[in-house]
Write a protein that binds this DNA or RNA. Structure first.
Length: 225
DNA sequence: GGCCAGGACACCA
DNA sequence: TGGTGTCATGGC
């Protein structure tokens, strides 16, 4: 996929810098994240599973107001209470359990989110994947945006766009797709963050489910030619 | 009222 | 091991 960098540049020209982690550009350009920032990104990554970001923002705001955005608070509160607090993100019963398992694991094994995330991604990724409720996309979102290490996040939109462009065969496995991105692009955390954000931004505008390119989609096969 | 959203896991043949 | 079902609220 030698065209991937071209795709990145075209999307950047089209939409401009996105400045994710996406809570209103809060972390835009910010590289020295606090412990609290990192917890918020991890919680957001879990809450965002199969859910619109608007719903996640609402939930994060609720958790923030109630001083619940810490590993200690999440691990101490009852599952039922936490579940009610994250209702608007959907799948609240499952996500409540996921958040508590994550918080308890990090506290017990590492003490802080920062220490946990400070591990090399070769150790961090399998450790994240070993936790119930954290799959490849959630793990990689946490590694890229909270740990700020260069792994490429493959989400529904990323897959949809590269399939639209016919850069990969349909149903290419996650790890292979990720490998393609990481081999074709400079291994740069900022670039990976921006490219992923730009893909989401662009796909929301013009790409429908089932890989149908919307009529106004610039990101078609002719896009990179 | 149906479709879809920045997934992940359980279950079954 | 691959296909299917389940989890669930909220916007359009």
């Amino acid at each position: 996929m030698p065209e991937l960098y071209q795709v990145y540049q075209k999307l950047l020209n089209l939409h401009g810098p996105q400045g994710w982690w996406p809570t209103g550009g809060k972390y835009s350009g910010k590289t020295n994240l606090t412990e609290s920032d990192k917890v918020e990104i991890c919680v957001g990554a879990i809450l965002a599973q199969n859910t619109t970001w608007k719903n996640v923002e609402r939930t994060l705001s609720t958790l923030q107001q109630d001083n619940m955005l810490s590993l200690q608070a999440i691990s101490k509160v009852s599952g039922k209470t936490l579940s009610e607090m994250i209702l608007s993100s959907g799948y609240h019963n499952q996500k409540s359990r996921k958040l508590q398992l994550f918080a308890k694991h990090v506290l017990a094994k590492h003490g802080t989110c920062s220490k946990f995330l400070n591990q090399p991604s070769e150790i961090l990724r399998p450790e994240l994947l070993s936790l119930w409720g954290i799959g490849p996309e959630t793990a990689d979102s946490i590694i890229l945006y909270a740990a700020q290490k260069p792994v490429f996040v493959i989400d529904t939109y990323t897959r949809r766009i590269v399939e639209n462009l016919e850069l990969v065969p349909p149903e290419t496995p996650y790890d292979l797709l990720q490998q393609q991105f990481e081999q074709q692009l400079p291994k740069n955390t900022h670039l990976f963050k921006e490219f992923h954000a730009l893909i989401v931004k662009h796909a929301k505008v013009c790409c429908k489910k089932n890989h149908v390119v919307g009529k106004n989609c610039i990101l078609s096969k002719t896009f990179i030619s």
